[in-house]
């Protein structure tokens, strides 16, 4: 398994930062060695199918690489994909197919090679350990998640649900896809938002009391991130578990059954 990372502009003066360490987290203590790598930063414009390199960054005698969304003037919902690569690898200025990320695993630890992904607004910030698995970027797939991270928030708090979609296979054109938010009981669609491959689809959600919500796309897969914030001093960010995490054994079959049951019901 190897992992991509990302930066995006989610709007409302929320800044996205990512911190990558040269030491693999979750490693055995006996394997305390650093990994030599650099990162390439690539973007794809909304209507373009080519990846364009906008930066290439090394550690420069420090232990961390820190990248910030404001360094790259990203448009609202634009993704910058960060690719860990071999130091010796020549990173081209343009690609049709994004290179695979370097695996930074050094033992059999079952936890993914993650980065600290921060979001901050004013004096408030929050982070989570995240990644976008290379394997996920090779499939079109479908997407389903729920709203547990929006529960019991005050009415003054706003939430953004962000669907991160990275697709590294060659594209012939940018298709328009739809992300829906629906009532989980009635299956009625509450709102829909268009998005394209290799973008962040941002849904701004006001308080929905205790209504149970689901978010889905029959077009592509993606990773859901929830950012709850107020205008002043509060911000919380976390990603949802994928449906496979509801199952201990037979994860793949369990997820297939669950997604089939929901996506066949939802309009």
């Amino acid at each position: 398994m190897s992992e991509y990372f990302f930066l995006t502009n989610v709007g409302n003066e929320i800044i996205n930062t990512i911190n990558l360490s040269k030491f693999t987290s979750n490693r055995l203590s006996s394997l305390n060695k650093e990994i030599r790598f650099k990162v390439g930063v690539y973007i794809q414009k909304h209507d373009d199918i080519k990846w364009q390199k906008i930066d290439e960054v090394g550690f420069n005698n420090t232990n961390n690489i820190k990248l910030c969304s404001t360094d790259y003037r990203l448009a609202l919902g634009q993704l910058a994909v960060i690719i860990p690569s071999n130091i010796e690898m020549v990173l081209n200025d343009f690609y049709d197919v994004l290179p695979s990320p370097l695996s930074r695993k050094i033992d059999f630890s079952p936890v993914a090679e993650r980065a600290a992904i921060y979001f901050e607004k004013g004096k408030a910030f929050s982070s989570y350990q995240g990644e976008f698995p290379h394997q996920m970027s090779c499939f079109k797939g479908s997407f389903l998640t729920f709203d547990p991270l929006m529960k019991s928030q005050n009415s003054s708090i706003k939430t953004k649900m962000i669907l991160i979609n990275i697709h590294t296979k060659k594209l012939n054109k940018k298709e328009i896809f739809t992300l829906n938010m629906a009532n989980s009981l009635s299956n009625k669609i509450i709102l829909s938002k268009d998005y394209v491959h290799n973008s962040a689809c941002i849904v701004d959600i006001q308080s929905f009391n205790d209504e149970e919500l689901c978010f889905y796309s029959k077009d592509t897969l993606g990773i859901p991130i929830f950012i709850s914030y107020d205008e002043d001093r509060y911000l919380s960010v976390e990603h949802n578990h994928p449906p496979s995490e509801y199952f201990y054994n037979n994860k793949i079959d369990g997820q297939k059954i669950l997604k089939h049951n929901w996506l066949s019901k939802l309009p």
């Binding site: 547990p148 005050n154 107020d230 509060y234 976390e238 990603h239 949802n240 509801y246 201990y248 037979n250």
Partner: peptide, 29 residues
Amino acid sequence: KLLDEVSFQHRGYTGYRNNLNSGFSYVHG
């Protein structure tokens, strides 16, 4: 039949706050 095929695991989400006027900060299991 369905339950024989899978075992459930509970990952869940825990929220913390120290100010009633603020929101919860959530972490997943």
